[in-house]
């Protein structure tokens, strides 16, 4: 079973029509590393990412075929709500729940799963998660305030803390820095490099520099197909496919 945490086999995804948005993708994701998915917009990278925690189940016009294994278990055969608890997700725009305080946002995963915690457990989780995203010192005195007054970067880190609170094995990130300024982006990238020792990260990015800086492995997708996948440095320095080359050179996308 090696050190793959996720194995994707023959994955096809289509929206209502017969056109496949993701075509026969096969890939293994290495545990405790960061894997980047790149490609021009509309190439199916977000669609692929969202299949991994079965977000497509929410929309009944989307058909998913194939298998995805999490530690050897086919997630298509698990209950979706279990899958999502084990595979967390961070979205493009920071979206702390506006109706909850900072602390409540961190605990949202527990509330949403009907788990009741005592005061002590709550305090512990809040502190651990906020520390792990480097937000503890900044917000520990304003925990009971709404998260919406934080800066964009802080909000996104809060969302990462919220996803981490349930101690997922995998963290899916859908262009998590595209709405942030360069300084906040750098901060998040640093954070991800620290977090990878606890959680395997798959990140969709349109920013090639970002993939180069943080990803161990990278995928390049084009028109729904996985064109090239492997060691990031190798992919950047010595791409095997024409499409990858022209994308990296800035001709596509």
């Amino acid at each position: 079973m090696s050190n793959n945490i996720i194995e994707i086999k023959n994955l096809n995804i289509s929206y209502s029509s017969n056109v496949l948005s993701v075509k026969n993708v096969n890939a293994n994701i290495i545990k405790n590393e960061i894997t980047a998915i790149m490609g021009p917009s509309g190439c199916g990278k977000s669609t692929l990412l969202r299949a991994i925690n079965r977000m497509h189940d929410l929309y009944n016009n989307i058909k998913v075929d194939g298998q995805i294994f999490l530690n050897g278990t086919d997630i298509m055969k698990m209950q979706a709500i279990d899958v999502r608890r084990k595979i967390g997700m961070v979205f493009q725009r920071p979206n702390p729940f506006p109706n909850m305080s900072i602390a409540e946002n961190v605990l949202a995963g527990y509330t949403l799963n009907g788990l009741h915690l005592n005061k002590h457990e709550k305090a512990e989780i809040i502190e651990r998660c906020l520390k792990s995203v480097g937000l503890w010192e900044e917000v520990k005195d304003v925990q009971t305030k709404k998260g919406t007054f934080l800066s964009g970067g802080q909000q996104q880190r809060l969302c990462i803390a919220r996803a981490l609170a349930l101690q997922p094995e995998v963290l899916l990130m859908d262009e998590p820095t595209s709405a942030l300024d360069p300084i906040a982006t750098a901060r998040i990238e640093e954070l991800l490099l620290e977090l990878k020792k606890d959680v395997s990260i798959i990140i969709v990015t349109h920013n090639m520099g970002q993939a180069k800086r943080i990803a161990y492995n990278s995928m390049f997708m084009y028109l729904g197909e996985l064109i090239e996948y492997g060691d990031t440095q190798k992919l950047f320095n010595n791409p095997m496919h024409e499409q990858t080359k022209s994308y990296l050179a800035g001709h596509v996308g």
Partner: peptide, 8 residues
Amino acid sequence: TINNTRRL
């Protein structure tokens, strides 16, 4: 304490 059946 998570009871998936009950929740679903």
